[in-house]
């Protein structure tokens, strides 16, 4: 019984909560104590049931109006969250836009920005290309320095024959 008083609180401990010595002693005690085996079985059954019960309870709740209810409690945002006139097909969309104004603005800007990027990209067709430089020099190395003012081409020394 004294042993049970010591080990009962350890039953159901999460991984890492017990030291190796404690876990080993608990396992040894459980192997020989029917009462603690029963406590362990209860603990395992309960720990499995509790999350399932909470999840089932949460699923029974309808959270579709949750954001509306929260927003209507906030006076400033409540006005923006006022439900759109019912009956219109756009009502859900307008409601979503009302609740997510920043996201809606960003979504509307995306195609505009894409169009601008396309215009800039196509406009570059007439812009100067990246200073294409082709240099060839037989028997010697060459080096090209690209500067904002134009290319600088340097000739290297003649390479020895057969190199």
């Amino acid at each position: 019984m004294t042993a049970c008083l010591r080990f009962a609180p350890m039953i159901g401990a999460r991984p890492g909560e017990l030291t190796l010595e404690e876990a080993s002693a608990l396992a040894e005690h459980l192997a020989s104590c029917g009462a603690c085996q029963g406590r362990l079985a209860d603990e395992e059954a309960l720990s499995g049931m509790l999350p399932e019960a909470l999840l089932a309870e949460a699923n029974r709740r309808d959270f579709s109006a949750f954001s509306d209810e929260v927003l209507t409690r906030i006076p400033a945002l409540g006005r923006a969250a006022r439900p759109a006139p019912r009956g219109g097909m756009l009502a859900p969309i307008l409601g979503w836009v009302g609740h997510h104004r920043l996201l809606a603005a960003a979504s509307a800007l995306a195609p505009t920005l894409a169009a601008l990027a396309l215009i800039v990209y196509l406009g570059q067709g007439n812009a100067p290309e990246g200073a294409p430089v082709e240099v060839s020099s037989e028997g010697r190395s060459t080096m090209v320095l690209e500067t904002s003012e134009g290319p600088v081409v340097l000739l290297g020394d003649l390479e020895p024959e057969g190199s």
Partner: peptide, 19 residues
């Protein structure tokens, strides 16, 4: 010197080429 370069520059640029 058997050197042959082809360089494209914009209006406001200059080529400096060792000859």
């Amino acid at each position: 010197r058997r050197t042959n370069s082809r360089l494209t520059i914009s209006k406001d640029q200059r080529i400096v080429h060792q000859v």
